[in-house]
Computed example of a mutant assay.
Amino acid sequence: MTAVLIRELSRRTGASIRSLRHYEEKSLLAPQRLENGYRDYAEPDVDKVKTIQLYLGLGLSTEEIALVLECPQEAATNRPLCKEAYRLYQGKLAEVERQIQTLQTLQARLQERLSQFENSASLR
């Protein structure tokens, strides 16, 4: 069996070597060690790293990702099938909606300020 070393895993996933080491520190990846000390990743780790990247892109922390990765996965879609993941997604969506509301409020205030400047004689 051919070893998948960290450089190859990085190339195949687009994740930096530093990120892969970080995932290992957070127990998201658990490579074997070769006699020379090099990390030896299994073929499924390629998909696992891509899944980790997907979850990071959704705004999940590495601790939250660890919880989701522990869930059983639906074979066809590779989606987690546990209540913890569902609750996590609900919480993340609520957080995003709060952030959107905050940004919309900020946008309205900035638009109001700009209108005040544009209507004043000081810009003319």
Results as ranks from 00 to 15, higher is better:
R39Y: 00
S10W: 03
V96P: 01
R12G: 04
L54T: 12
E24A: 12
L69N: 08
R109I: 15
L5Y: 04
V68C: 04
Q116E: 10
R124D: 13
L67D: 07
S115T: 09
A121M: 14
C82E: 01
H22E: 06
V4A: 11
K26G: 08
R21P: 00
A94G: 01
E97P: 04
S19Q: 14
L28V: 02
K26H: 15
E63K: 10
E24D: 10
V96D: 09
Q104I: 11
V46Y: 02
Y89L: 06
R98Q: 02
L123S: 11
S122A: 15
E70N: 11
L67K: 10
R113T: 13
Q104H: 13
L81S: 10
E63Q: 15
Y86D: 06
D47C: 11
T105D: 08
S16N: 00
T2G: 12
P72N: 02
D45I: 04
Q101A: 15
D40P: 05
V4D: 09
S115E: 14
T102F: 03
S19D: 09
L93C: 14
E95C: 03
P80F: 04
I100V: 15
C71A: 03
A42N: 07
R79W: 09
T105M: 14
R87H: 10
L88S: 03
V46L: 05
S27L: 11
E95G: 00
K48G: 01
R98P: 02
T62C: 12
L93P: 09
V68M: 09
N36L: 06
G14N: 07
A108R: 08
L20F: 01
Y38G: 02
N36T: 05
L29W: 01
A76S: 06
L28H: 03
L9A: 07
L29G: 06
L114D: 05
R7D: 11
K83I: 13
K83R: 14
P72A: 09
S61R: 03
L28M: 03
S115A: 13
Y23V: 00
R124K: 13
Q73G: 02
G37R: 07
A76N: 03
G57I: 13
S27G: 09
A76K: 05
A94H: 02
R21L: 10
Y89H: 11
E63G: 14
Y23A: 07
A121P: 12
A75L: 06
G91L: 00
I65T: 00
A3T: 12
R18H: 01
A15G: 04
T62M: 10
Q111A: 15
E64V: 00
